[in-house]
Every structure is written in structure tokens, then in C-alpha cells.
Design a protein around this nucleic acid. Sequence first.
RNA 1: ACCCCGGUAGCUCAGUUGGAUAGAGCAUCGGAUUUCUAAUCCGGCGGUCGCAGGUUCGAAUCCUGCCCGGGGUGCCA
Length: 578
Amino acid sequence: MSVPATNVLSDVLSEWMKTMFESTFTDVKYDFSQITVVPTGDSQFGEFQCNNAMAMAKDLKKSPRQIAQSVVEGIDLHESVEKVEVAGPGFINIYLKTKWMSSALTEMAGRDDLCVPRIGHGHTVVIDYSSPNVAKPMHIGHIRSTIIGNSIDRMHRFLGYKVISDNHIGDWGTQFGIIIMGYRHLLDKVALESSPIEELERIYVASYEKGKADEEWMDKCRAELVKLQAGDVENMQLWRQFVELSLGEFERIYKRLGVSFDHVRGESYYRDRLGDVVAELKERGLATESEGAIVVFLDDEKLPACIVRKSDGGYNYATSDLATVESRVAAYSPEKIIYVTDERQQLHFRQIFAICRKMGVRVELHHVWFGLMRLPDATFSTREGNVIKLEKLLDEAERRSLAIVKESSPNMPEEQQKAVARSVGIGAVKYADLSQNPQSLVTFTWDKALALDGNSGPYLQYAYARIASVQDKYAERFPNSNIKKYPIELIEPVERDLAVKLLQFPETVLRATLSYKPSSVAEYLYDLAKTYSTFYQNVPFLKAEPGVRESRVRLCSVVAKVLRKGLELLGIETPDRI
RNA sequence: ACCCCGGUAGCUCAGUUGGAUAGAGCAUCGGAUUUCUAAUCCGGCGGUCGCAGGUUCGAAUCCUGCCCGGGGUGCCA
């Protein structure tokens, strides 16, 4: 009577149902591997259902109900299953044994992995995320890669993968030619002293604008870049200054967000290998000269040609990314490399991946992309000046939550109020981003990004804090109780709902990780917290009779464990009081 | 012109990869606190799932065409 450590519930039941179909239709040729069991949408139909009888009907030329009926009649019930029923056109509904659920929950409560299979054990993945550009402040458009990437990072680690997180900052691109020209001719030294990053951004934008209208200026920018890339002493010194200033600023934000990286290797880290990459491509006959540039044609893949060396001799992003793949493969032998960027880079990565395949690179390459952040009335753009700085967003989030903490917990020490406001504010911002499908178009609104009620980060944190409080009160009132002596009993329907939800945690995490979708975890946690809130509001536990009381407090603690772990996977903190 | 994505309630978004009566939050209307934290709970209102065909037992989900919006398409990243 236990949840297998290497298999999640849906899989176990699917395997069982498959065997049942096979033993019912021994003389029938059919691909039984497609038989699966999925959670029901409605508890009146049991906890799981199998829909394959309907699909089989035309192949077997029998009525779907008849097929379902034959399977059910001869069925050998799985240890976890109370009963199965045929319903509607031919659904097979599966009802779990309450007692089995109780013991499965008890086992889950006792395990640090919460019965999530460690499928990543022995596998290495590199995750490349956040990757801001030097000399540009992080605005709200940059937050998605950081938060989604960090969550994917956390999920992989939890599944046992060895994760190497790498912040591939943009520290070696064309922008440096533009910035150096701006620095030489447009700099306001006083402004650089007082707010360096803003001044760097200003000269970048000003220089870029100038270059758009003035071809000669742009040529000079390119020339400065070539000088830098050739190792010119003066330009190198400027470059180092820009990078250091920016890294300090990024670090401050990462600290607030609770994000850290194993490596921060910018594009510059690979700069000495760019020539070798191009040479190798030429050697293999993959790259050829065209209009003065060196390009890789990808006609076979139906992709546009990819330039790996510009006609002025400079290298670009593609070359750098190819060198990065080679370097990572040589250094870590990863099973896969995951990139988390916005949607604009889809074509770029398709080209890079295609070239890697042509070069015989073994590693699995995966691009996780997300939609650009937009404003309700306009497209987001640095040059339009309608950006919202990331720090401003975080400040506002903490400010709004502090106001609520002060109102709802006036007796809390001020230091704690501030700490809570920080956790809750940052949690709200992260949850707002993680709870939507990454590929949707995202429209930024303050009220959505900073939602503190309803489907929000604080809602989940609140549910957790309530449980922490219940546990403290229980320990206070019944100091000598040995709560583990009492079994978890699922009496009320809402308790059963909670149990079903909890038992779905492993498969939710597994699926979310394999599909790179933290939003699935967020959705699951909201569902769980909502069910818990109903339970909390409508069922007494500290005031329930002995035995029932202990059972319910134990159930609460399983919910707390899952909420805490789930939120941790999203990078959201769980204070005991909010 | 071509490629990728999106279009679901007044607004912001989910939708377990084709399942049973399409769901949340916000807003709005009504109710719940001498009780375990009201950042909560219970209920009402709200829908031609962009449009038109098609595939099948069954479609928001798959295929085709069109409309609208976003992004991209050899010397930016």
C-alpha cells in the first residue's frame, strides 16, 4: 500500500488499465499502449477515468459501452481502487479507496521528495536564462526570463537533475561600439557620477538615435566595436567599466528576487573561440562566403541563411552562441541545454540548433520562449521611453503589501512587517508572471502584476500561513499529544477533495518540468489552496473531537508541505505569518 | 510576401494535449466573523470559445480558408 517512488499515480493506474484491456481482448490486435487513465474533471465521476473504450469502438466494430462493460466485468481491482463504473457513452470511472488514499498521504508526508520521482538523477542540464544586456537597466520586460528560467531551474533540481545555471549576459555585442561612441562624444560626466547606469543607457539611446540618421556615425560605431574585439587597450578599459557597473546593478536585483547562478559567463567569455568556430564551419563545408560575409546556408531546413562573420570582420550573436554550445558540451557533457528567452529569438535558435545538428553536436537543445510584455495602450519600447523599471515594480509591490500588513497585523513588530511585505510583494510579482501561459501575449497592468487577493501569490502564502498558525496553536493547546499515533481519516467530501489534489502533486510537477511550464504548478497550487480555504472555512479542526482533530491537523500539515515545496519551485517564499 | 504566436464572460486570464453541463480572478449585486488569521468563505449576474467549413461517438482543443492583433525574416541581440 504505497505510492511507488518511481511512478506517479496516473501512470500506475494507466499501466493497470492497459493490462485489464489486454486480458479482456486477448484475441484482438490492438495497440494497447495508447490506453491511459486521466484525472476526472468532476468528483462525481470518481477520481480517475479511462476514455479509450470509445476510441476502440470503431476498430473493434463493437459499441463503446459494450467494450467498457467487458473490461469492467472481468476486472481485477488495483489495490488503490474501490470500484469502477461504466458511464455515459463508455467512460470507465475509477473510484479510489479512501483508506488507500489516507496511507498514501501518510507516506507522502513522511518523504522529503513528496513522492515526486527523481527522474533526473545522473543527468546534467544547462539552463541559460535572465541574460540581460550590459549598460541597459532591467525593466519589466526582463523579468520573465529571470523568473520563468529560475523556476525551470528549481524544478529540474527537485527532480534530481544536476543543473548548471548560466546567466549569459550580453557583454560583447554591437551595442558596445554604440556606447563607446556615445561615451566619447555625448557623455555627461556629472550624471555618470550620480547614476551611472541611467547615464549609460541615455548615451546608448542617444548614440543609437544619432546612428539611425547618420550613416557615418554608425560606421564609426562599428569601427569601435572591431577595435574592442581586436583587444584595443583603451576600449577594453571602457568595456570593463561598463560591465562592472552593470553587474553590480543586476546583482542587487537578483538578490531581491532570490535568484542566483552557478555561472555568469557573458558572450565575452567565448570571444577567443569565435574565429575557431567559423574556421571549423568552413572546414566542414558548412559555411561559405557571400557578399563579403561568411554565412551558413540552411536551405535543407527551410531556414534563412545565418551569418557567422560580418563583412567588416566582426562576429555576431550566432557565432557566439555556437561557441557557447561547444564550450558547454566540452565542459559539462550535459544531456540538454535549455534557453529561456522572449519570442523574438525563435528563428535565431532554430538556426543555431540546425547548425549544431549539422556539426554533429549530440546535446539536446531546447528553446523555451515567452511572449513579450506589452502595455495596455502601447508596445513596450526603450526608445519610446515608456519603460517601467524592474526596481520600481518591486518597490511598488513591497509598498502595497506593507500597507496591508500594517492594517491586518498592527501588533507585529515593524521589522517583521517589513520582512513579510518583502516576501509577499515579491511573491505577488513572481506569481503574476508564472501563473499565465508563457506563450500568451502578456499585457502589463499594475493591478494584475501586484494582485494581492484572489488568484495571486499572497493567496497561496496566506493559506500557508494559516496552516502554520494552526500547527502552532495545536502544539500550544495539546503539548503532550503524539499526533502521529492518529491516522489521517477522510470524512468530509472536502477532505477527500483535498487528498485527491495532494496525491496529484507528483504528476503535476513531473509534467510541468517536462513541458517547461511553471504555470502548471502555479495553477495546481491555486486549486489546492482554494480547496484548502473551503476546508478551513467550513470544517472545524482544533475544535473538533479528539481523533478527528488530530486527523485534520495532520491533513493540514500535508497541505502545508505541498504548498511550501510547490511555492519553492516557483521561487516564492512562505512566511509563517503574513 | 513568407514563418511563429495569440483571439475564450465588461476587464485580465486558465483550460490536465480530443472527453461528460467551457472555468477562475477582478468588477458588480447579496450573504457569512462572540470561533482555527476576513489578504478568507458562500451565493447571484455574466459566453455564438474571432468567422466559415471539415475530420468523428465527441472539438475551445486537430485540418483548411479568411478576419484582427503581436513578433520575426543575411551583416542588431
